[in-house]
Computed example of a mutant assay.
Amino acid sequence: MIVVISGLIFYFVIRRIRKQIDEMAEVLEDIKNGNGNRRILSETHEIVAPLAYEMNDIITSYENRLSAFRETEENNRQLMTSLSHDVRTPLTTLIGYLDAAQKGIVTGRDKDDYIETARRKAHDLKDYIDVLFDWFKLNSDEFAITMNQVEAVELTRDILIDWIPIFEDKQIDYSIDIPEQPFRVNLDSDAYLRILNNLIQNVISHSHADKIGISLSKQNDKIAILVRDNGIGIGKEDLKHIFERLYKCDKGRSEKGSGLGLSIAYQLVEKMHGSITAESEQGRGTVFQVLFPLAD
Protein backbone atom coordinates (compact mmCIF):
# COMPACT_ATOMS: atom_id res chain seq x y z
CA MET A 1 0.00 0.00 0.00
CA ILE A 2 2.80 2.36 0.93
CA VAL A 3 4.54 1.59 -2.34
CA VAL A 4 1.35 2.26 -4.30
CA ILE A 5 0.72 5.57 -2.50
CA SER A 6 4.34 6.61 -2.93
CA GLY A 7 4.12 5.74 -6.61
CA LEU A 8 0.99 7.80 -7.05
CA ILE A 9 2.53 10.77 -5.26
CA PHE A 10 5.66 10.48 -7.40
CA TYR A 11 3.50 10.23 -10.53
CA PHE A 12 1.54 13.40 -9.72
CA VAL A 13 4.71 15.28 -8.75
CA ILE A 14 6.37 14.37 -12.02
CA ARG A 15 3.20 15.23 -13.91
CA ARG A 16 3.06 18.64 -12.17
CA ILE A 17 6.72 19.31 -12.95
CA ARG A 18 6.25 18.35 -16.61
CA LYS A 19 3.23 20.66 -16.82
CA GLN A 20 5.24 23.52 -15.32
CA ILE A 21 8.12 22.90 -17.74
CA ASP A 22 5.64 22.99 -20.63
CA GLU A 23 4.30 26.28 -19.25
CA MET A 24 7.86 27.64 -19.02
CA ALA A 25 8.48 26.69 -22.63
CA GLU A 26 5.23 28.39 -23.64
CA VAL A 27 6.10 31.58 -21.73
CA LEU A 28 9.62 31.67 -23.17
CA GLU A 29 8.25 31.22 -26.69
CA ASP A 30 5.80 34.07 -26.05
CA ILE A 31 8.65 36.27 -24.81
CA LYS A 32 10.74 35.29 -27.81
CA ASN A 33 7.91 36.54 -30.03
CA GLY A 34 7.95 39.96 -28.34
CA ASN A 35 5.67 39.73 -25.30
CA GLY A 36 8.03 40.80 -22.51
CA ASN A 37 5.26 41.05 -19.92
CA ARG A 38 4.93 37.28 -19.43
CA ARG A 39 6.24 35.69 -16.24
CA ILE A 40 6.53 32.10 -14.99
CA LEU A 41 4.23 31.39 -12.05
CA SER A 42 5.22 28.98 -9.29
CA GLU A 43 4.49 28.42 -5.60
CA THR A 44 7.48 28.83 -3.29
CA HIS A 45 7.27 25.23 -2.04
CA GLU A 46 7.39 23.67 -5.51
CA ILE A 47 10.52 21.98 -6.82
CA VAL A 48 10.76 24.18 -9.89
CA ALA A 49 10.26 27.43 -7.90
CA PRO A 50 13.98 28.41 -7.76
CA LEU A 51 14.31 27.84 -11.51
CA ALA A 52 11.11 29.80 -12.24
CA TYR A 53 12.20 32.75 -10.10
CA GLU A 54 15.67 32.78 -11.66
CA MET A 55 14.17 32.76 -15.14
CA ASN A 56 11.82 35.62 -14.17
CA ASP A 57 14.84 37.63 -12.98
CA ILE A 58 16.62 36.97 -16.27
CA ILE A 59 13.51 38.02 -18.23
CA THR A 60 13.19 41.23 -16.16
CA SER A 61 16.87 42.03 -16.65
CA TYR A 62 16.55 41.39 -20.38
CA GLU A 63 13.49 43.65 -20.62
CA ASN A 64 15.29 46.42 -18.71
CA ARG A 65 18.29 46.23 -21.04
CA LEU A 66 16.01 46.16 -24.06
CA SER A 67 14.14 49.21 -22.76
CA ALA A 68 17.43 51.05 -22.20
CA PHE A 69 18.57 50.07 -25.69
CA ARG A 70 15.36 51.40 -27.20
CA GLU A 71 15.73 54.65 -25.27
CA THR A 72 19.32 54.99 -26.46
CA GLU A 73 18.27 54.22 -30.02
CA GLU A 74 15.57 56.91 -29.84
CA ASN A 75 18.03 59.42 -28.37
CA ASN A 76 20.50 58.64 -31.13
CA ARG A 77 17.76 59.09 -33.73
CA GLN A 78 16.90 62.48 -32.23
CA LEU A 79 20.57 63.37 -32.14
CA MET A 80 21.04 62.52 -35.81
CA THR A 81 17.96 64.57 -36.70
CA SER A 82 19.36 67.47 -34.69
CA LEU A 83 22.77 66.97 -36.26
CA SER A 84 21.29 67.05 -39.75
CA HIS A 85 19.51 70.33 -39.08
CA ASP A 86 22.00 72.08 -36.79
CA VAL A 87 25.05 71.32 -38.95
CA ARG A 88 23.65 71.51 -42.47
CA THR A 89 21.83 74.82 -41.95
CA PRO A 90 24.81 76.89 -40.71
CA LEU A 91 27.10 75.10 -43.17
CA THR A 92 24.82 76.07 -46.06
CA THR A 93 24.74 79.67 -44.81
CA LEU A 94 28.52 79.68 -44.41
CA ILE A 95 29.01 78.48 -47.98
CA GLY A 96 26.57 81.14 -49.19
CA TYR A 97 28.56 83.96 -47.58
CA LEU A 98 31.87 82.64 -48.90
CA ASP A 99 30.50 82.10 -52.41
CA ALA A 100 29.14 85.65 -52.48
CA ALA A 101 32.53 87.04 -51.45
CA GLN A 102 34.51 84.78 -53.83
CA LYS A 103 32.30 85.42 -56.90
CA GLY A 104 32.31 89.19 -56.47
CA ILE A 105 28.60 89.44 -55.68
CA VAL A 106 29.62 91.71 -52.80
CA THR A 107 32.63 94.01 -52.85
CA GLY A 108 34.46 96.45 -50.64
CA ARG A 109 33.17 96.83 -47.10
CA ASP A 110 30.29 94.44 -47.74
CA LYS A 111 32.77 91.74 -48.78
CA ASP A 112 34.74 92.22 -45.57
CA ASP A 113 31.51 91.95 -43.55
CA TYR A 114 30.54 88.74 -45.37
CA ILE A 115 33.93 87.17 -44.67
CA GLU A 116 33.75 88.17 -40.99
CA THR A 117 30.24 86.69 -40.71
CA ALA A 118 31.48 83.48 -42.34
CA ARG A 119 34.37 83.34 -39.87
CA ARG A 120 32.02 83.64 -36.88
CA LYS A 121 29.70 80.99 -38.26
CA ALA A 122 32.66 78.67 -38.85
CA HIS A 123 33.66 79.05 -35.18
CA ASP A 124 30.07 78.41 -34.06
CA LEU A 125 30.00 75.27 -36.18
CA LYS A 126 33.30 74.09 -34.72
CA ASP A 127 31.99 74.63 -31.17
CA TYR A 128 28.90 72.60 -32.01
CA ILE A 129 30.94 69.73 -33.44
CA ASP A 130 33.25 69.80 -30.40
CA VAL A 131 30.23 69.33 -28.13
CA LEU A 132 28.96 66.44 -30.26
CA PHE A 133 32.39 64.81 -30.13
CA ASP A 134 32.49 65.18 -26.33
CA TRP A 135 29.04 63.63 -25.99
CA PHE A 136 29.84 60.64 -28.21
CA LYS A 137 33.13 60.09 -26.40
CA LEU A 138 31.48 60.41 -22.99
CA ASN A 139 28.87 57.77 -23.88
CA SER A 140 31.32 55.30 -25.42
CA ASP A 141 33.04 52.35 -23.75
CA GLU A 142 36.41 53.99 -24.36
CA PHE A 143 35.78 57.00 -22.13
CA ALA A 144 37.63 57.05 -18.83
CA ILE A 145 38.06 59.63 -16.08
CA THR A 146 41.61 60.04 -14.75
CA MET A 147 41.40 61.44 -11.23
CA ASN A 148 44.39 63.26 -9.80
CA GLN A 149 44.82 65.56 -6.84
CA VAL A 150 44.93 69.08 -8.29
CA GLU A 151 45.00 72.62 -6.93
CA ALA A 152 41.52 73.87 -7.86
CA VAL A 153 42.12 77.60 -7.34
CA GLU A 154 44.98 77.88 -9.83
CA LEU A 155 43.28 75.52 -12.29
CA THR A 156 40.07 77.57 -12.19
CA ARG A 157 41.97 80.82 -12.61
CA ASP A 158 43.81 79.47 -15.66
CA ILE A 159 40.52 78.40 -17.28
CA LEU A 160 38.78 81.73 -16.67
CA ILE A 161 41.65 83.83 -18.04
CA ASP A 162 40.84 82.58 -21.53
CA TRP A 163 37.21 83.70 -21.16
CA ILE A 164 37.93 87.34 -20.27
CA PRO A 165 38.58 88.48 -23.89
CA ILE A 166 35.35 86.74 -24.94
CA PHE A 167 33.35 88.52 -22.22
CA GLU A 168 34.82 91.84 -23.31
CA ASP A 169 34.19 91.15 -27.00
CA LYS A 170 30.54 90.31 -26.29
CA GLN A 171 30.20 93.26 -23.89
CA ILE A 172 29.32 91.09 -20.91
CA ASP A 173 30.23 92.57 -17.53
CA TYR A 174 32.00 89.95 -15.46
CA SER A 175 33.03 89.44 -11.85
CA ILE A 176 35.39 86.67 -10.83
CA ASP A 177 35.87 85.83 -7.18
CA ILE A 178 38.71 83.32 -6.70
CA PRO A 179 40.39 83.07 -3.27
CA GLU A 180 44.12 83.05 -2.70
CA GLN A 181 43.88 80.05 -0.38
CA PRO A 182 44.68 76.80 -2.26
CA PHE A 183 42.13 73.98 -2.34
CA ARG A 184 43.25 70.42 -3.09
CA VAL A 185 40.62 68.39 -4.93
CA ASN A 186 40.59 65.04 -6.74
CA LEU A 187 39.60 65.88 -10.32
CA ASP A 188 40.18 65.08 -13.96
CA SER A 189 41.55 68.44 -15.15
CA ASP A 190 40.23 68.08 -18.71
CA ALA A 191 36.75 67.15 -17.46
CA TYR A 192 36.77 70.11 -15.05
CA LEU A 193 37.74 72.39 -17.94
CA ARG A 194 34.82 71.07 -20.02
CA ILE A 195 32.36 71.54 -17.14
CA LEU A 196 33.27 75.20 -16.60
CA ASN A 197 33.41 75.91 -20.34
CA ASN A 198 29.98 74.37 -20.90
CA LEU A 199 28.38 76.32 -18.07
CA ILE A 200 29.87 79.62 -19.26
CA GLN A 201 29.03 78.88 -22.90
CA ASN A 202 25.46 78.15 -21.85
CA VAL A 203 25.22 81.66 -20.37
CA ILE A 204 26.63 83.27 -23.50
CA SER A 205 24.53 81.26 -25.95
CA HIS A 206 21.18 81.12 -24.20
CA SER A 207 20.69 83.50 -21.29
CA HIS A 208 20.77 86.89 -23.10
CA ALA A 209 22.66 88.12 -20.03
CA ASP A 210 24.91 91.17 -19.92
CA LYS A 211 26.42 90.21 -16.56
CA ILE A 212 28.07 86.99 -15.39
CA GLY A 213 29.57 86.16 -12.03
CA ILE A 214 31.89 83.22 -11.32
CA SER A 215 33.12 82.34 -7.84
CA LEU A 216 35.01 79.58 -6.07
CA SER A 217 34.69 79.05 -2.33
CA LYS A 218 34.88 76.46 0.42
CA GLN A 219 31.66 75.02 1.85
CA ASN A 220 32.42 72.70 4.78
CA ASP A 221 34.34 69.77 3.27
CA LYS A 222 33.64 70.76 -0.36
CA ILE A 223 34.54 73.40 -2.88
CA ALA A 224 31.67 75.26 -4.53
CA ILE A 225 31.84 76.77 -8.01
CA LEU A 226 29.02 79.21 -8.80
CA VAL A 227 28.19 80.53 -12.26
CA ARG A 228 25.43 83.15 -12.14
CA ASP A 229 23.91 85.47 -14.73
CA ASN A 230 21.28 88.19 -14.92
CA GLY A 231 19.62 86.77 -18.02
CA ILE A 232 16.06 85.81 -18.88
CA GLY A 233 16.03 82.85 -16.53
CA ILE A 234 14.50 79.40 -16.92
CA GLY A 235 10.90 78.42 -16.22
CA LYS A 236 10.13 75.95 -13.41
CA GLU A 237 9.04 73.20 -15.78
CA ASP A 238 12.12 73.58 -17.99
CA LEU A 239 14.40 73.72 -14.94
CA LYS A 240 13.47 70.12 -14.08
CA HIS A 241 14.87 68.88 -17.39
CA ILE A 242 17.85 71.10 -18.28
CA PHE A 243 20.44 68.41 -17.53
CA GLU A 244 18.74 65.86 -19.76
CA ARG A 245 20.48 65.17 -23.06
CA LEU A 246 18.98 66.83 -26.13
CA TYR A 247 16.61 68.89 -23.97
CA LYS A 248 16.04 72.44 -25.17
CA CYS A 249 13.82 74.90 -23.38
CA ASP A 250 10.79 75.72 -25.46
CA LYS A 251 10.23 79.31 -24.41
CA GLY A 252 12.48 82.31 -24.13
CA ARG A 253 15.70 80.45 -24.88
CA SER A 254 17.81 80.62 -27.98
CA GLU A 255 17.56 77.71 -30.41
CA LYS A 256 21.31 77.84 -30.94
CA GLY A 257 23.14 74.81 -29.60
CA SER A 258 22.91 71.05 -29.47
CA GLY A 259 21.03 70.56 -26.21
CA LEU A 260 24.02 68.52 -24.99
CA GLY A 261 26.26 71.00 -23.16
CA LEU A 262 24.55 70.87 -19.76
CA SER A 263 24.02 67.12 -20.04
CA ILE A 264 27.75 66.65 -20.63
CA ALA A 265 28.56 68.87 -17.63
CA TYR A 266 26.14 66.89 -15.46
CA GLN A 267 27.60 63.52 -16.46
CA LEU A 268 31.19 64.69 -15.94
CA VAL A 269 30.39 66.10 -12.49
CA GLU A 270 28.77 62.82 -11.46
CA LYS A 271 31.70 60.77 -12.74
CA MET A 272 33.99 62.84 -10.51
CA HIS A 273 31.76 62.26 -7.43
CA GLY A 274 30.44 65.82 -7.39
CA SER A 275 26.99 67.36 -7.70
CA ILE A 276 25.49 70.11 -9.85
CA THR A 277 22.29 72.06 -9.31
CA ALA A 278 20.54 75.02 -10.91
CA GLU A 279 18.29 77.71 -9.50
CA SER A 280 16.48 80.18 -11.70
CA GLU A 281 13.64 82.64 -11.87
CA GLN A 282 12.31 83.96 -15.13
CA GLY A 283 13.46 87.52 -15.69
CA ARG A 284 15.94 87.37 -12.80
CA GLY A 285 18.72 85.11 -14.05
CA THR A 286 20.14 81.68 -13.26
CA VAL A 287 22.68 80.25 -10.82
CA PHE A 288 24.53 76.98 -11.41
CA GLN A 289 26.37 75.46 -8.45
CA VAL A 290 28.93 72.67 -8.70
CA LEU A 291 30.27 70.93 -5.60
CA PHE A 292 33.32 68.66 -5.33
CA PRO A 293 34.70 67.01 -2.16
CA LEU A 294 38.00 68.38 -0.90
CA ALA A 295 40.87 65.91 -0.98
CA ASP A 296 41.77 64.24 2.34
Score class of each variant (00 low, 15 high):
residue 202 N to R: 08
residue 227 V to H: 00
residue 173 D to T: 04
residue 201 Q to A: 15
residue 190 D to F: 08
residue 176 I to A: 05
residue 189 S to M: 03
residue 172 I to M: 05
residue 190 D to G: 07
residue 207 S to A: 14
residue 230 N to A: 05
residue 181 Q to M: 09
residue 189 S to C: 01
residue 236 K to Y: 05
residue 231 G to H: 07
residue 217 S to A: 12
residue 233 G to N: 06
residue 201 Q to V: 02
residue 210 D to I: 08
residue 176 I to D: 04
residue 227 V to M: 11
residue 238 D to P: 06
residue 218 K to R: 14
residue 238 D to F: 01
residue 220 N to C: 05
residue 238 D to W: 02
residue 172 I to E: 11
residue 173 D to R: 14
residue 175 S to P: 00
residue 222 K to N: 13
residue 194 R to G: 04
residue 217 S to N: 06
residue 224 A to I: 04
residue 185 V to E: 03
residue 169 D to K: 15
residue 170 K to C: 01
residue 189 S to Q: 14
residue 183 F to L: 06
residue 184 R to Q: 13
residue 231 G to T: 08
residue 206 H to Y: 13
residue 175 S to E: 13
residue 208 H to D: 14
residue 242 I to K: 07
residue 166 I to M: 12
residue 230 N to V: 01
residue 199 L to Q: 07
residue 195 I to H: 01
residue 190 D to S: 11
residue 171 Q to F: 14
residue 226 L to S: 13
residue 220 N to P: 02
residue 223 I to H: 03
residue 191 A to K: 10
residue 187 L to Q: 09
residue 192 Y to N: 05
residue 164 I to C: 13
residue 173 D to H: 10
residue 194 R to N: 07
residue 200 I to C: 03
residue 242 I to R: 10
residue 213 G to S: 15
residue 182 P to H: 06
residue 203 V to W: 02
residue 225 I to K: 04
residue 177 D to Y: 02
residue 178 I to P: 00
residue 173 D to E: 14
residue 233 G to D: 10
residue 212 I to Q: 11
residue 182 P to E: 11
residue 181 Q to T: 14
residue 215 S to D: 11
residue 180 E to A: 09
residue 234 I to T: 12
residue 208 H to A: 12
residue 167 F to N: 12
residue 180 E to Y: 11
residue 226 L to Y: 09
